[in-house]
Design a protein around this nucleic acid. Sequence first.
DNA 1: GGGCCGGTGAAATTGATTCTCAAATTCAAC
DNA 2: GTTGAATTTGAGAATCAATTTCACCGGCCC
Lengths: 169, 169
Amino acid sequence: MTTRSQTPAPRARVRPPPDAATPAEARTRLNEWIAERGLKATRQRDLIVDTFFGATGHLSVDELLSKVQERDENIGAATVYRTMKILADSGLASPRHFEDGQTRYEAAIGRHHHDHLICTSCHAIIEFENERIEELQDLVARQHGFLVTRHKLELYGLCKACQARQPKR
Amino acid sequence: MTTRSQTPAPRARVRPPPDAATPAEARTRLNEWIAERGLKATRQRDLIVDTFFGATGHLSVDELLSKVQERDENIGAATVYRTMKILADSGLASPRHFEDGQTRYEAAIGRHHHDHLICTSCHAIIEFENERIEELQDLVARQHGFLVTRHKLELYGLCKACQARQPKR
DNA sequence: GGGCCGGTGAAATTGATTCTCAAATTCAAC
DNA sequence: GTTGAATTTGAGAATCAATTTCACCGGCCC
């Protein structure tokens, strides 16, 4: 059922998704992680994880909540927030903070570190990796005596399609 | 979780500030910009601009508000928010969104583009420039057909002092 | 010497996220 | 299967930064 087509999920991915996880694998991994620390597996968590890993791209909690509620309308927002936090803690999903004020999550199973190109017009998000840039970042950090644990590199601009669509402006 | 205590303003700058603006110059520049579009110069705006350019580092509105209220306790938060938005629109200040959930502003007069190293322990913010990284970013963008208008590069980790302070952990 | 207009500041609002708490669920041990 | 302790759930309240609203201000121009 296409519910009201609110904010379109940021379209992503130019080539076939490099995501290496099936929903089933993710559920299994999460339940292992949960069992290890005395937490409990629940139907809701499974459903949320299943939905998240069955989708692609960079989902906000809101977007994910809509998808989840298509399958079970009684699931509350708080549960989705809590579940995504657990997914992030367990390393199965990565939270991203782009500049729209919402936290977005992306699948993190079997994925390399990568950075993002973000179209400010259509909100497409394209991922890229660049080893040289990483090396230079490390170099800069060392020059300042810094020990870097993570970084954020985001390039904002117009994607090819949007450039063609709106020549100027 | 969020320490309620007045988080100290992130200390910045390892060498002498490269900021190239005096408060007076900034006031003048802003008033020109304001006059050009039929807005009005006000005592409050001057005071806020003066305070902002008289300080260094990356100030949150909250921190700036405190400083401003030391000089005139009747100035309201809304005015500081509005004034900083005007400063940003006029190009005299740059808004930055680091990962503490608040917008921080830095002086932008006579400054080059630069990126940031951020200590996750003491919240120091160090600025750096690296031409090679910029070039590589442009290259990556071109390879994806992107027209980049701005970017964000932030390296998070431990500064030298904090590494010494907490050898492990 | 009254309008006109933008500016001001206190309070209310918004929007994302987190917290609270009673009720429901999970799960290991009977 | 049943029990019971511990955890999870979901609705609504609370938070927090940021924005908006709105009634009052204060110059400036006829």
